[in-house]
Structure formats: C-alpha cells, structure tokens
Amino acid sequence: MLRHLRPALVLLTGLTLVTGLAYPLAMTGIAGALFPAQAQGSLVRDQDGTLIGSALIGQTFASERYFHGRPSATVAPDPADPAKTVPAPYNAANSGGANLGPTNPALIERVKADLATLGAENPADPVPQDLVTTSGSGLDPDVSPEAALFQVPRVAKARGLSEESLRALVAGQVQEPSLGILGERRVNVLALNRALDLGPMPARQAR
C-alpha cells in the first residue's frame, strides 16, 4: 500500500510547492518588477502624494466642475439594518450590476430621471447611452469620448472656461483600443478630472 501511495504523495507535495507557492511568488515578483504601478493596483496620487483613487475603479464626482462617470449600481450593508442594503456607488468590495430587466419600473424611472437631468445640462446633443446605463461590474472608470464631450458645456460653464479648450483636453485623454482591436475608445474619468485640476485652471473645489 505504502509503495503505491508514496509516488502520489510525492507528486502532490511537489506540485503544491511548485504551483501553489513557487509559481505565484515568482509571478508576483516579476509583475512587481516589470509593472510596479499596475501590480500595486494602478493607484493614482495627487502632487503631494495623497492617494486619490485607482485608474481601474470609478468614483463619484458630484460637483458641476468635474466630469461625471457612468452610473453605478453597487450596494453595501445598511448600517441601520445589516440584513438590508443601501446604494454605495463604485463599492469595490461588492462589484456587480443592478440585475434589473428593461421593463423594471425602478430602472425605467431612474433612466428617465437621468435623461431629464442630462438633457437639461446639454439640450443640443443626444444623451450618450453610457451616461444612463451601469456597467456589469458597477466599477467602470471610463466613459466613451462622446459621453465626455457631452459634459463639456456644463464643466465649461462651471469653471468659466471655453468649450474649445475643454474639448481639446478631452481629446488628449482619449485612450485607443488595446493593440488597436481590444476594447473601445475611452476616457478615464479620474485622469480627465485630474488633468482639469493640474492645468492652468481655477483651484480645486470639493468633489
């Protein structure tokens, strides 16, 4: 019996050490050496070193002076009743979509309200789809170039800037599909808003 078990135990131990310990440690070390920023979560820091977010996770910008991301349907436990949940946009600990069907009254009312608000901000252009729809993860940090450009009139008015200068800023933040074919053209909202604050513009206000 032992003669038959020994090879299996040796193989199990060897594979556990190689694939469960050595390989993960080696890949972690290589990733940290070659791609240190990405390995640490693609963190974004302000000029003084203050952590302001991650390039991989969206965040809420409520001020009219900033570009807004797409809606997020993530939730968190209700502090008053842990058995219930409350909205918590871009909650990285609980990513996910709303799972509401296209005929759900709550979804229809929310989209209608968002369309009315956005339409009042910029009645000259149609509202881009990604400004009223959530992503599957609820953490999407990007919007389409069209969604960013749609918000230019509001941000320009709030900051007292020309729309032409903001359109140029948006154009400079557009990321092309990876390798030219993977994904779509996009704008990272945090990077765009950071560029707003770092440029020759009025001082930052609270988000």
Rank of each mutant, 00 (worst) to 15 (best):
F67V: 15
T28R: 14
G29Y: 00
A93M: 05
G32C: 11
G138A: 02
A116C: 05
E146M: 05
P105T: 11
N104D: 15
D140R: 01
E163C: 09
I52P: 06
E109H: 06
F61W: 08
N99W: 08
G41H: 02
L131F: 02
E184A: 14
T50H: 09
D197S: 11
E121R: 10
I30N: 02
L118Y: 00
L2P: 11
D114N: 12
P123Y: 08
L196H: 14
Q173K: 15
D81F: 13
G180P: 13
A26G: 06
P145D: 12
P177C: 03
Y23E: 00
P36A: 10
P141Y: 11
S162P: 01
P89I: 09
A116S: 04
G32L: 13
V10T: 05
T13I: 15
V75Y: 09
A116P: 05
L107W: 07
G119E: 00
L198D: 12
A55T: 00
I57Q: 04
L118R: 02
S42V: 09
A88V: 09
L115Y: 09
D140C: 00
A26V: 14
A80T: 14
S135M: 11
I108G: 08
S178Y: 06
D140F: 00
G29V: 03
N122I: 13
L56K: 03
T133H: 07
L2N: 13
A37M: 09
G41E: 07
T85M: 10
L11R: 00
L131K: 03
G96T: 06
G101K: 10
T134S: 13
A156S: 05
